[in-house]
Design a binder for these strands. Structure first.
Lengths: 349, 349
DNA sequence: TATTGACATGAAAACGTTTTTATAATAAAA
DNA sequence: TTTTATTATAAAAACGTTTTCATGTCAATA
């Protein structure tokens, strides 16, 4: 710990120039005589000068920081999002400040700390539910805002989301076409959640267009956990599985999928022979359980990258109208759907 | 998007006072006449004034932000650390800025961006390996630094770590005393990693003191992944398992543990009857696989909290000498060690 | 009644940059 | 040679706070 207070003034003094000249060479915007530039650069190296970002922020009226508001830090989804955002941020020379906010009030407070108080130049808002109040107040803010995950039709913000209905359709199609199942269950999520609804809709759409006589059911719950998957499977799907028929369950995410699988296995349903399972997200557990779970991979890292790019574009005035980006999910075929059963010897089979 | 540039000057004008008076009421440090205070507060509410954090940062010479440097964003460990740090930060009114840095050079750069350029008041450095160069250069910095995970004996920084040797000892003791195993294998990590070494040592220490005639072996690898666990188990431990004898494997973390389990199961070793497994970290997968894995839970959230508290204490001058905090891990008994086999019906058994 | 001290507030400096404006010095044009 | 551009640099203002210092008011003391 030593005191490190080397300012632009010190550099100016050593180099025998004014501070404006120093500023010019560090930001190289105006032309500086080669000789002078040399002297200044030498002084900078000698002193180890690094411009104070606080002063820069005040003067430039920006922080080169992008805020990110998330409900928590768990799961593969968050991790990948961070990876993507940081990667893009690094190449663009900006920083990321993450705030945790679960309730609408917390989100609003976070937005204010970041934008109104000037800690960030823009914010990436991860929205698990649609909070009109939050979105309206956020409109008062003079900084770009991009909303992830949640479709915010009607509000004029940038919006990045995955085509959930299509994704679920693909999953259902896989069950229907390659495994020729007789029934399809959508399990998990919540009935107030736009994503869950879209995914469920995708399942029914597939049934209607591909095999109308197949059974189709949806069982929403309290959210996206392993425990909910286990509970719902036990309470709702177990009794609906008839011997001699094949089923597919499409879970709201991989956690739910695992819960479902374990519940069925615990009650002697043969997974995946009699009932296959497909999850969502391609999270870590999906590929690190004994029976590898087939899943719809959401391009999460890409979302993170695109989000910071959008903020930056908007800051530089490149874009004016709100943009809505729809990303496609990808089916990752593993074992839990019934494919690839020869990958490993499994005692369950 | 509207322009929100309400400054202290606007407030002062509306309230009919000077900016110093406004500053005094928002920070309530000096005494202000009740009547004046009222007028100012009314003006603040009316305009929705929030002090500009950039200007505050410059003037106060601090940002009320704590930097955190991590190798990546994956896993339960990182998530819990963030939870803890953010929780503590929120109650103390500071923010957290996370930078990703894998290589030593990146770490150094991150430290400079945060401290030298004044983006943060202190930094929490997650160190997976001991980089003397990083630690030495970091010493030039005039800001508090706390190092996590890695024992930095010799360097004068704050240091928070878990007692790895003791933790491994506890795990080994469990195998030896309650399952009466004949052999103990430590699997995973790397032989250059202080943590791995400490953990392996704990295993041998337990053997020596509790059951000297038990077999003890250590198999280091390339790190902490599921894949490494699978590979090592297949290559090294499989052949060493003799029928009629009982074994315990202590994995470098839960990922490795899962890999080991799956490898053994795939080769028809009965887990946990013939070979039990104990992991480290209590990460998500540990409790969300079919066979729940017994693990040593590291108090990660606590580490996050303590780390920001230490930074803050040091900033306020409460502490002067470097502090080293050793935290204890806790054995979470589940199924993979051989306990609690009745929790769920399992077909593997 | 003049003097002191406490108190409330205003004025101004400081924080370390960027950016605008001004001013030399030099080169080109008349 | 004088005038006009052009160029390189310096000086000063601005960013929005905090904080120090100065000032004025009023009540208490001498």
């Amino acid at each position: 710990m030593k005191q490190g207070n080397i300012t632009i003034h010190n550099v100016a003094k050593i180099a025998g120039v004014s501070i404006s000249t120093v500023s010019r060479v560090v930001n190289d915007l105006d032309r500086v005589a080669p000789d002078t530039r040399n002297r200044v650069e030498k002084a900078i190296r000698k002193l180890g000068f690094r411009p104070n970002s606080r002063a820069q922020a005040l003067s430039r009226k920006r922080t080169d920081t992008i805020g990110m508001i998330v409900p928590d830090f768990f799961g593969q989804y968050f991790a990948m999002l961070m990876e993507g955002a940081h990667e893009e941020a690094q190449t663009k020379g900006v920083h990321i400040m993450v705030l945790k906010a679960k309730t609408p009030d917390e989100k609003l407070d976070a937005i204010n700390r970041l934008c109104t108080e000037g800690r960030a130049d823009g914010v990436i808002l991860m929205l698990s539910e649609l909070y009109p109040h939050v979105l309206e107040v956020a409109g008062e803010i003079a900084a770009p805002l991009v909303v992830l995950d949640k479709d915010i039709r009607g509000y004029r913000y940038d919006n990045i989301l995955v085509d959930n209905q299509l994704a679920a359709y693909e999953a259902a199609k896989h069950f229907l076409e390659v495994h020729d199942v007789d029934g399809l269950f959508f399990v998990g999520g919540s009935e107030s959640n736009v994503d869950s609804i879209a995914r469920a809709r995708g399942v029914f759409e597939a049934i209607e267009t591909l095999k109308p006589k197949a059974e189709g059911r949806q069982f929403f719950g309290q959210g996206y956990s392993y425990e909910e998957g286990y509970r719902i499977a036990q309470a709702e799907v177990l009794d609906r599985i008839q011997t001699g028929r094949k089923y597919g369950v499409i879970a709201a995410n991989d956690d739910v999928a695992c819960g479902v699988m374990d519940a069925l296995l615990d009650h002697n349903i043969d997974v995946p022979a009699q009932a296959g399972v497909i999850g969502f997200d391609d999270s870590y557990i999906a590929s690190h359980r004994r029976l590898k779970v087939t899943t719809m991979r959401v391009p999460t890292k890409e979302i993170g990258k695109v989000a910071v790019r959008m903020i930056l574009d908007r800051l530089s005035g490149k874009v004016s109208e709100p943009v809505k980006i729809l990303l496609k999910a990808q089916l990752i075929v593993r074992q839990s759907c019934g494919c690839g059963r020869t990958n490993q010897t499994r005692k369950e089979a």
